[in-house]
Write a protein that binds this DNA or RNA. Structure first.
Lengths: 209, 209
DNA sequence: ACCTGAACACCGTTCAAGT
DNA sequence: ACCTGAACACCGTTCAAGT
């Protein structure tokens, strides 16, 4: 482990334990046992520290090249990404702002490329479809950990069922909208739909099957 | 305009002009012409201020109920969401952490519900599919404005084409990965694929068509 | 070569006063 | 009822010294 990695790992541990807000140059330095200014030669700045933290996560996270059908490969990637987001809820929002061009990002992307190619997606469409798939997985993870879906009942109750009169489509869906959601089942259903989409794209440009 | 709205609009303007980092209780108070502490009765806290800012955006943003085919409706929503994200690049990341349960959020969601129902998606699947669609649109917008896709050539060059040997699927796609991406065309292609997915879901549970 | 200490220009938020 | 001013406990980062 280099000094830089030691610093980044300390910052990740701090974020896991006390939240991203608790990560400061001062608190990280404290944990490493050094003065805040001693970090600068290794991490450059606070912004670079945050980038480095997501880099460390990606480095640890890339699953060994998954085997099986392309559906199994994709499922393994998706589920491991979701687990990672749950272990490090502070990380998902940060990922949007770091260019997916590091070697670690590309290792993960390569696995998605491989699955898409095996699914029969024409090569010209693979990069775009990879961006669709990874964006959806990342966005869904960020929504789950961020609370956009209103997971916690506190937020649900605060909203009440106000103003259904102004929301015609909500009114038609009154039956569905009342009851709680099984998020595990929803994730698996999303995965199945993603596979449906991939198959549709593969089929639409490969009429010979 | 209430006092609260005046404060939130000042904060939004500040974020547009000088970035989210320039939004502080002190700078917002300055712009409103008041002491920082005078904001608290109206906005509660810095975190609530940020939530309120995305609330203001959603309030202004919801397009008048779009007409035409469900594809046209969905396209109008998607394109207006993308424009909004480009006008306020600081906002997309924040949206992930505010529960989509306010009246303004629900007005937007209602439009997506309506389009999905008109597409023939079974009601039991509509809420889930809405989350898929909105998550993808939001995630893609966040990726574009955040720089995850490496839009700026600076980031692209810094990465080089390192280590293709470790990335077998990248090697197979060497032809595609070299050239620049037309992001407008990609957005439209994504939209078309989203419609494909919706149609597939609608068809899979409605064999009589 | 690597680290420290003091300092600068900021933060969000509290609390007691003012009018 | 609404606002101010001073204060507290923090920030990231600079710069000049230390060893």
């Amino acid at each position: 482990v280099t000094q830089q990695e030691e610093i980044l790992d300390a910052a990740v541990a701090l974020a896991d334990e006390r939240g991203l807000a608790a990560v400061s140059m001062r608190s990280v330095a404290d944990r490493v046992g050094v003065t805040p200014m001693a970090l600068y030669p290794y991490v450059g700045s606070k912004a670079a520290l945050l980038d480095g933290m997501v880099g460390r996560l990606l480095a640890q996270a890339t699953p060994a090249a998954p085997s099986g059908t392309w559906q199994e490969q994709l499922g393994a990637i998706a589920r491991s990404a979701r687990q990672l987001a749950r272990r490090h809820p502070w990380a998902a929002p940060l990922v949007f702002s770091v260019p997916a061009l590091t070697l670690d990002s590309r290792r993960l992307i390569d696995l998605i490329f491989a699955a898409l190619l095996e699914a029969g997606v024409p090569p010209a469409q693979v990069p775009r479809l990879e961006r669709m798939v990874s964006t959806f997985l990342l966005g869904y993870a960020a929504s789950e950990v961020g609370g956009r879906f209103g997971h916690d009942p506190a937020a649900r109750d605060r909203a009440g069922d106000l103003a259904h009169s102004e929301l015609p489509a909500h009114a038609k869906l009154a039956g569905q909208l009342g009851q709680p959601v099984d998020w595990e089942a929803e994730f698996e259903a999303n995965l199945a739909d993603l596979e449906l989409l991939i198959q549709a794209v593969a089929a639409s440009s490969d009429p010979g099957s």
